[in-house]
Design a protein around this nucleic acid. Structure first.
Lengths: 202, 202
DNA sequence: GTGTCCGATGAACACTCGTTCACGGGGGCG
DNA sequence: CGCCCCCGTGAACGAGTGTTCATCGGACAC
């Protein structure tokens, strides 16, 4: 229980951190308010001083995450570069972000079903915005003749699914270094759009 | 509720069908025995005439599914063919199977966390067996010089994650036909291992 | 016809769920 | 000092959880 209170962490942030980890581990329905409170080391009723309900807590986590994800992605990808460079930046950013924030991304993609309509709407809009950025890169590469993608919409989703699944099996302590994993993803995905880094074509 | 009893469907099978759908929709923790019973149209206590507990019901669903998946995969892939042909068969089989049985596969990959240790062990062994079949194809193709895969273990998981995600977004009623989706997957994945169907290389 | 057994019932068990509320302590501001 | 207002407590609420059990109808074997 209980973090040593590093720097300026108030109860609300600590609650967020523990809730995020627990939701990712056992799922929204599998975690009780008592679990969250117990993990932090407070009473269950204390949570309601910071979040109106369990549902609001989930929405708060998901929206905060999606907004940060989109902001970070925009900072990491230079949209004036060539499609090939954009795609590689996007992939390297996403896999790294995923490995830094495995729980947040996992929740955002898995717990949509646990959201009540109004919250779901908000999150879906943000998720579509992110997906559309990748799709835009594929479209541009296709139009420029750099990529060969039969169907950008489908391929975009394939690529996201592939990358989002990484946290299910990757262990930081495993035989494979993080940089190596990122490289494999970058190469595999560039290849999948007909644009290998080893090829002279690009 | 209640199916009209098509052909020879007994209560146990009907329970399985409804439980599978509900688990996939709302998650194991999000579904109560009363939900399942209510969906079928019987009392909750009737379930215990067929399954010892909710946990046993989940294990039953997952093991049955994994065994059928492996059996069907072995029947669909000709392991005497070339690695390229094997991979294409595997991908086409998996995507089709996924679209035929979206709930079962989704549960098998998502609800591992809801399994108690003994059941999880059984399912993980089966899942590894399936994954290993794909990895074997990649290894063979790599050794034969047909594929270029930096790391077969990682790429195998990437491919599975990509394919397993299809049910999240694919709608049978959407603009894209099922055959078209399968084609996109086959082409994208063959490309990702450096072996495009359009290329003379293979 | 009689006996057996499978399977469904509905009430009940002890427990956990999300949420509410009256209460109190302690720090900041007038 | 006196006031208020965060923010925490602990007990309680009604509802829902998985599971058990005595009971009973009806199909099948002899």
């Amino acid at each position: 229980m209980a973090d040593l209170e590093t720097s300026r962490s108030n109860t609300k942030d600590i609650l967020r951190d523990h809730a995020r980890r627990l939701f990712a581990e056992r799922g929204y329905e599998g975690v009780s308010m008592r679990d969250i409170a117990g993990s932090v080391g407070v009473q269950q009723s204390a949570i309601y001083n910071h979040f109106a309900s369990k549902q609001h807590l989930l929405v708060d986590l998901m929206v905060d995450h999606m907004e940060d994800l989109i902001r970070s992605m925009r900072a990491a990808v230079d949209f004036r570069a060539t499609p090939r460079e954009q795609l590689e930046s996007f992939v390297r950013f996403h896999v790294n972000y995923q490995l830094d924030n495995p729980d947040a991304l996992f929740i955002a993609y898995m717990e949509l079903r646990s959201l009540e309509p109004e919250g779901r709407e908000t999150v879906v809009v943000l998720r579509d915005e992110y997906e559309l950025a990748l799709r835009g890169i594929l479209d541009a590469g296709d139009a420029a003749g750099e990529f060969e993608v039969t169907n950008p919409a489908v391929v975009a989703r394939c690529i996201l699914a592939m990358m989002t699944g990484v946290t299910v099996w990757y262990k930081e302590t495993g035989p494979l270094g993080r940089e190596a994993v990122v490289d494999v993803f970058a190469e595999t995905i560039l290849r999948s759009v007909g644009c290998s880094s080893a090829t002279a074509e690009c």
